[in-house]
Design a binder for these strands. Structure first.
Lengths: 184, 184
DNA sequence: GTCTATATTCCGATAGAC
DNA sequence: GTCTATCGGAATATAGAC
């Protein structure tokens, strides 16, 4: 893996673990064994690092989208859940939630890219729900966009809350989301 | 209002607006017209300020609990929503969500107090849902605790997301939560 | 209680050698 | 690309006068 990719991977983890204002170039420096000055060669400013990190997630999401294109609605939903299963296993939170709570302190360019990511996630889940409803396997009486927001906020919120209420709440919620979608 | 209360009120707003690591004593200093050194007289460390701020929310929640004790399940739920309606009007996020994403960077005492607050909120909503179900006005097929977590994460998450997806999503979600609770 | 002054540490960022 | 060295600023916190 290139140094640039090592930095990006660690940046992602640190943002989700400590928040954008809770980690420093020194954290990256000590972990991958490179001086802080060298990080600036790859990313001139911390905002540049933030933008690149969010863009990386957007690219990953596009990959997921391609992979599930011809899968069943349930499999599409599981692919979305898998993002948060990974987050849970790392005992951190998701990138969108972490940056959203720091929104008023980050550079405008990060904000723009984060809006792109949030929009892409919302589109993915909304389409998944519409697909499931048209095929008669998902049932809900509210707009697909709103139902998608409910499921997304369930996942985004539970990874934040479960460290305060109990880890078992994650599986309970994931299971209940599917159960409610299946019941007429 | 005492200086101490002024500091606490501003601390709450700043944590929710910029995150715990995104605001400084200087922000408080310049707003209420007091030197940063004076803030330390009231709160020796930033962690002390954090603990007191969370305890303030816990006290407010106890007040709400007393107020709604004999109200209908719908009114109880609206009282819970009202916390987030206020958050929305301030264009910020909720305290639990903001501190949860910074959890690994805050003092242990703040973490303990935040757990107490999250537990109290979960209890309030769970009891509200159980009350509504026993009275036949709310309908859901999953454990009350899980349903409560779903509604809490809906609110916690939508105030974080709506600044990225659109403000209209807040009302849509609030309305849909009630609609789904009412439908058999 | 609030002030001035200061200690200490940390952070993002840049210049220039290698 | 990575390094050493350093700048400038901001942060939390403390000491002591008023």
């Amino acid at each position: 893996m290139t140094t640039r990719d090592q930095i990006l991977k660690l940046s992602d983890k640190l943002i989700r673990d400590k928040g954008f204002n809770g980690f420093s170039f020194h954290d990256i420096s000590k972990t991958i064994g490179i001086k802080t000055a060298s990080i600036h060669y790859h990313f001139p400013t911390k905002a540049d690092l933030g933008v690149a990190t969010v863009k990386g997630h957007l690219k990953s999401l596009e990959e997921i989208k391609k992979t599930i294109a011809n899968k069943s609605p349930f499999q599409k939903l599981e692919a979305f859940f898998s993002i948060y299963v990974k987050v849970k296993s790392e005992k951190s939170v998701c990138l969108v939630g972490s940056l959203a709570t720091d929104l008023n302190t980050v550079d405008g360019k990060v904000k723009v890219e984060l809006k792109n990511l949030a929009t892409a996630i919302l589109e993915l889940v909304t389409e998944t729900l519409e697909d499931g409803k048209s095929k008669g396997v998902f049932h809900f009486q509210i707009p697909a966009r709103t139902k998608a927001l409910m499921i997304i906020t369930n996942m985004l919120g539970i990874v934040q809350l479960m460290r305060l209420t109990g880890e078992q709440d994650f599986e309970a919620m994931k299971g209940s989301i599917v159960k409610e979608l299946k019941s007429k």
